Simulated scan of single mutants.
Amino acid sequence: MATASRQYDLVLLGATGYTGNLTAEHITKHLPEDLKWAISGRNISKLQALISNLQVLHPDHQPPSIEVTDLSQASIDALVRKTKILPTTVGPYHRYGTPIIEACAHAGTHYLDSTGETPWVYDVAHKYHDLVRSNGAIMIPQCAEESAPADLVAFLRSSFLREKTGHATKEFIHSIQEFNNGFSAGTLHSLITVASSYSFQHLRKSLHPYALCVGRSPSSSPFIPKGFTWLGSIKVKEVGLLTDSVIGISDTTVVYRSWSLMDDYGPRFKYWTGMKARNRVTGFLWHWVLAISLPVLLITPLRSQTKSSTTWKSVAYSDSKPSHTAECSMSFERDMYSLTAILLAEAAMVILRPDRENWAMKLGGGVLTPATLGHQFVERVISAGMKMEINLVDKAPE
Rank of each mutant, 00 (worst) to 15 (best):
A360N: 11
S159N: 12
T273D: 12
T229M: 13
L373E: 04
D355N: 12
S308R: 06
D263W: 05
A4V: 13
G136Q: 01
D264M: 04
I249A: 10
A148H: 07
P209N: 00
L79C: 10
L297Y: 00
Y18A: 01
A348D: 12
L298R: 06
G227D: 08
S293F: 13
W286D: 06
I138L: 00
K313H: 05
L35A: 01
G20Q: 08
P295G: 13
S304A: 09
L54V: 12
T89Y: 00
Y265V: 01
A341V: 09
T229D: 14
T19P: 02
R303N: 07
D244V: 15
I101S: 02
I292Y: 11
A154K: 02
L302R: 10
A326G: 09
A105W: 05
D263S: 15
S196Q: 13
I39V: 15
A360I: 11
T28H: 05
G240D: 01
P295V: 12
K362R: 15
L131C: 09
E163C: 04
G97C: 02
T252I: 09
T372N: 05
A74E: 14
Y256I: 07
I39F: 08
P87H: 04
V68M: 09
K387P: 07
T115F: 06
W286N: 06
G283D: 05
T252N: 10
E178P: 06
E117V: 11
L231T: 15
N53E: 14
W272S: 00
L302Y: 09
S190N: 01
M386T: 05
P64Y: 10
P119R: 04
E178Q: 09
T83S: 15
L368I: 11
A345H: 07
K362Y: 11
A4Q: 14
V239G: 01
K36M: 13
K237S: 15
T118W: 03
A326P: 07
T165Y: 08
L302M: 15
L241Q: 11
G266P: 11
R280M: 12
A345T: 05
E25S: 10
T372I: 01
P354L: 03
T306V: 02
G20V: 03
M336P: 01
G108N: 13
W230C: 07
G116R: 06
F228N: 03
P218G: 07
